[in-house]
Simulated scan of single mutants.
Amino acid sequence: MALVWEKRSGGNLYQVRRHGASVRLYSNGVFHSQWNERDPLKGSLWELLFLPAYFLPPERIRSVLLLGVGGGALIRLLQRFLRPERVVGVDLDPVHLSVARKHFGVRDATLVCADARLWVTDYLSNPDQSAFDLVIDDLFGHSDGVPERAVTADQNWCRQLLQLARGSGGGSTLHSRAGGDPPGLVIANFGSRRELLASGWRTPAVGALLGGAWSAELPGYENCVLAASTGPLSRRQLTSAAPSQINPALPGCRLSSQLKPLPRWA
């Protein structure tokens, strides 16, 4: 694996490496992002975060908020396959945003260097701000070389993400959806299924807001991905639209995703 670039900043060592056609971002030895321009759907964890977007019809995903940019691989997937009109990425680490632009080829996206918790609170304080069709929570840091969530998914955080994902409706605001458009979708990454099941997403107060909730896991990874919405979510919709390389209904699918409805709250 060839070292392309490295930088020490704030006590962290950042490295960009190439492995064949893939570019990879490492931070203190932790593997953060991977992008392969020639073959982007290879069955990795990033595709597991991307797959649940197809719970919505692709034409409905006009605006996306990504909390936790990393190297920007997820932005590249969204833009390659769903082509949203608006993408906003928020990350606390300015080096990640620089790497996303210079090494992962992220273009035509608004990248914001900020604490996601503060940014979300400030954004929601102005009801005239535009809502999003898709909100992705991939806020991870690392401790002693082990990735861990950077923001606790308590009830307040879950409610905030659902409020952001009201469906843009061609320019509607956070206050209301224009034209009665159906609600948007929240995708959230967790370090394990246990962490997801212990989060605010499974409390009665948040569960009562949900019309649909699914989990997705990938053999060989501990991560567990949530897809949740105040509207219903249909597996049939997902399998009717997802690309063949990651579509769980098709033979030869590269992504061994284990999709299942999220158990009702206790």
Rank of each mutant, 00 (worst) to 15 (best):
V151T: 02
L97P: 02
G105E: 12
V135T: 11
S130I: 12
D154G: 00
V106F: 00
D137E: 11
A100P: 13
W119Y: 06
S168N: 15
A150K: 12
R149F: 07
H142Q: 13
Q160I: 04
V135L: 01
T152P: 10
V90N: 02
H96S: 15
G89E: 10
F104S: 07
V120D: 00
A165Q: 02
G141N: 07
N126Y: 08
V112D: 08
G169C: 15
L164H: 01
P147G: 06
H96C: 11
D137K: 14
R149T: 03
V99A: 06
G169Y: 12
A116M: 07
C113P: 08
S125D: 13
D115K: 11
D154K: 01
R166S: 11
A116F: 03
Q163R: 09
Q155K: 12
A131Y: 03
D154Q: 04
A165V: 03
T152L: 12
A150I: 09
V106A: 02
A114M: 01
V99K: 06
G170C: 07
S172C: 14
L164P: 00
W119N: 06
S98K: 08
Y123E: 03
A131D: 00
F140H: 08
S172V: 12
A165I: 03
F140P: 05
R149G: 09
A131I: 04
K102P: 11
L118K: 08
A153M: 08
S172R: 09
L162Y: 00
A109W: 04
V90E: 06
R107E: 15
D133T: 03
H103W: 12
R159S: 04
G171F: 06
D122H: 14
V90K: 10
G170H: 07
D133F: 02
K102G: 03
Q163A: 10
G141L: 07
P147Y: 09
V90Q: 10
L161P: 00
D122R: 14
T110E: 15
A100G: 14
F104E: 11
V112F: 02
D154F: 07
S98F: 15
T152G: 10
D137P: 11
H142R: 08
P94M: 06
T121M: 04
L97W: 01
L139I: 03
T121Q: 11
N126I: 14
D93T: 08
Q155N: 12
A131H: 10
R166W: 05
C158N: 12
V120A: 02
T152Y: 05
D122A: 15
G167T: 05
A165Y: 08
D133S: 06
L139T: 05
S168T: 14
R117K: 07
Q160T: 06
V99R: 04
R101F: 00
F140V: 09
A153T: 13
D138G: 05
C158W: 07
F140Q: 05
A109G: 06
L164D: 01
D128C: 14
A109N: 05
S130C: 10
G105N: 01
I136W: 02
H103Q: 14
V146A: 13
R107F: 13
A150W: 05
G89L: 01
G105H: 14
P127D: 08
A150L: 12
S168I: 08
L161I: 12
T110N: 15
L118E: 13
R101S: 12
D115Y: 11
L92R: 11
A153P: 09
L118P: 03
D115L: 12
D154I: 01
Q129F: 11
R149M: 04
K102Y: 11
W157Q: 04
C158T: 01
